[in-house]
Design a protein around this nucleic acid. Structure first.
Length: 516
RNA sequence: GGCGAGGUACCCAAGUGGUUAAGGGGGGGGUCUGCAAAACCUCUAUUCACCGGUUCGAAUCCGGUCCUCGCCUCCA
């Protein structure tokens, strides 16, 4: 397996510190707002990477922090008129809810910065003791000039940066790029006591302290968005390697590309953010996953409503394969013929034999999900073609189709895509039914003349039977060639997310899963 | 100014030296169907921003030109 390492700017063979185990740290959110689509892409990219590593058999230990003390949180607290700790709590919960909605595989631990102040102080003290940091009137700064390799991650040199940089001039800093490890407390802000007086940690130290604590020295993967390369990860690396006197702090630095909106980077500072929680009100979270899987994780991706619609269609295409196979598998209960001599099952065998190796080959090349998905789409077409070619299938073929379905679901799962069979009226839950109760009862009254009370009883006791009333009624109308009425009934059910498909085997009922 | 990424069909997007340039979406035509849906078939890039070069052979390597985006300041 090869991964692109930002440190070396090249794809390199992935060899974890300990055979069979992978330690991974993904920079978590600074909790002062709900996450937007750009943030979501980062967490989704690393969710895919993590899932794939697990799929490959690695024992993955995943740490994701909450940065719950920071200037931005303090500002937001002033804006909302609540304590900073409440702001942090509110948006930490929001993040966990968003993560669940997108079906992120939860991290093994979610450490919070405020619960690791002693570890940070210890680390800062160590840096001061070793001469990498200096104290100025209650502030502590890391002195970048003391670390010869400063800039090795972001591939820039201090003197080059100084030439063009617009860096705030701070007389107390020895170099404009020196950064705060500890900030002296200001009135009314959260603070902790330290050897340098009351204060709070600077931005980068929390990630170094927590990653070293939970993953140890020289862990495998550190991930984040490309905008974290400088200064955040550069500074984390500098602190950690100076503190431990060991290199590398991180074996593989992985960074995802940005989400843009009509060509501009989506960022709070630009003011063009689309919040994830708003998107998933309207679109299935699987569609969001699909959207990001169809572009390589390091490439930029332009977000739009149109793309979500395309992704809905393409996700349905893959998902429908499972439903299509299931329809055929039901034939197992019916009469089946022997495998016809000469029937060419090479298409089925091809996916069973090559589906996984091809998928793995693509993913092993720096997690090339678009390429891997290409194979699934191709397989879906081939198998649909096969299904459409025959009316009857032998037991051997049904066994193969069962294997294909399981493999398809397993490969989707390796990148977090869930494929499910078609839902039918017996699969819907209480909430789903209740949302549609009033309309559906009056619908049955209107089309079948059943009074609302009787309809209500049937609705409660036997919802599939309730739906069948419509289907039967429509069948009768069709038999009488009353197409208008039949189509009105179908349109009515469609408005309630119940889809009818007339096939040779009769009218099939399925529930719309995806919201468009 | 420094550094980095990239320009592949109507849109999105894989492919980084060698058979017919994956795949998705959209559109045209067709099959099935009363219609629709789903699914299938078929067409939609002799060509990969442009110009040179290397090579038996390049979208892929080299040089140049044009353009886009990002980082260098909080940002995933």
């Amino acid at each position: 397996m090869r991964v692109y390492n930002t440190l070396t700017q090249s794809k390199v063979e992935f060899i974890p510190r300990e055979e069979g185990k992978v330690s991974i740290y993904v920079c978590g959110p600074t909790v002062y707002n709900y996450i937007h689509i750009g943030n979501a892409r980062c967490y989704l990219s690393f969710d895919v990477i993590k899932r794939y590593l697990k799929f490959k058999g690695f024992d993955v230990y995943h740490v994701q922090n909450f940065t719950d003390v920071d200037d931005k949180i303090i500002n937001q607290a002033k804006k909302e008129g609540i304590p900073a700790s409440e702001v942090a709590e509110k948006y930490s919960q929001g993040f966990i809810e968003d993560s669940k909605a997108l079906k992120f595989d939860p991290p093994d631990i979610r450490p919070k910065a405020t619960e690791h102040i002693p570890e940070m102080i210890e680390m800062i003290q160590g840096l001061v003791d070793k001469g990498f940091a200096y104290v100025e009137d209650g502030d502590v700064y890391f002195e970048v000039g003391k670390f010869d390799e400063y800039g090795k991650l972001s591939h820039r040199k201090l003197d080059e940066m100084e030439a063009g940089a617009r860096v705030e001039v701070d007389e107390r800093k020895r170099n404009p790029f020196d950064f705060a490890l500890w900030k002296k407390a200001k009135e009314g802000e959260p603070s902790w006591s330290s050897p340098w007086g009351d204060g709070r940690p600077g931005w980068h130290i929390e990630c170094s302290a927590m990653s070293l604590k939970y993953l140890g020295r020289s862990f495998d993967i550190h991930g984040g968005g490309q905008d974290l390369i400088f200064p955040h990860h550069e500074n984390e690396l500098a602190q950690a390697e100076c503190y431990t006197a060991e290199s590398p702090f991180v074996r593989y630095w992985l960074h995802n590309g940005f989400v843009t909106l009509t060509g501009d980077k989506m960022a709070k500072s630009v003011g063009n953010v689309v919040l994830l929680k708003d998107v998933i009100k309207k679109y299935d979270p699987m569609v969001v996953r699909m959207l990001f899987l169809t572009t390589h994780y390091r490439s930029p991706i332009d977000f739009s409503e149109e793309k979500l619609k395309e992704s809905t269609r393409s996700y349905e295409r893959l998902n429908n394969l499972v439903g299509n196979i299931d329809r055929v598998l039901k034939k197992r209960e019916e009469k089946v013929s022997r495998l016809e001599p000469g029937r060419d099952v090479i298409v089925l065998k091809a996916f069973i034999e090559n589906g996984e190796p091809e998928f793995v080959e693509a993913m092993d090349d720096d997690f090339n999900a678009p390429d891997a998905l290409g194979g699934l789409f191709k397989a879906a077409r081939d198998i649909n073609t096969y299904l459409a070619s025959y009316d009857e299938f032998s037991l051997d073929e049904l066994d193969m189709l069962q294997d294909i379905k399981e493999l398809f679901i397993r490969l989707g799962g390796a990148v977090g895509l869930e494929f499910t069979s078609f839902l039918s009226p017996e699969d819907v839950d209480e909430e789903w039914r209740e949302e549609r109760r009033a309309v559906m009862l009056s619908g049955l009254a209107k089309f079948a003349g059943v009074n609302v009370k009787d309809a209500g009883v049937l609705f409660n006791r036997d919802f599939p039977g309730f739906v069948k009333k419509f289907v039967d009624l429509r069948a009768a109308k069709r038999a009488e060639k009353e197409w208008q009425t039949a189509d009105t009934i179908r349109a009515f059910l469609d408005s309630q997310d119940i889809l009818l498909e007339d096939t040779a085997a009769g009218t099939l009922v399925r529930i719309r899963r995806l919201i468009v």
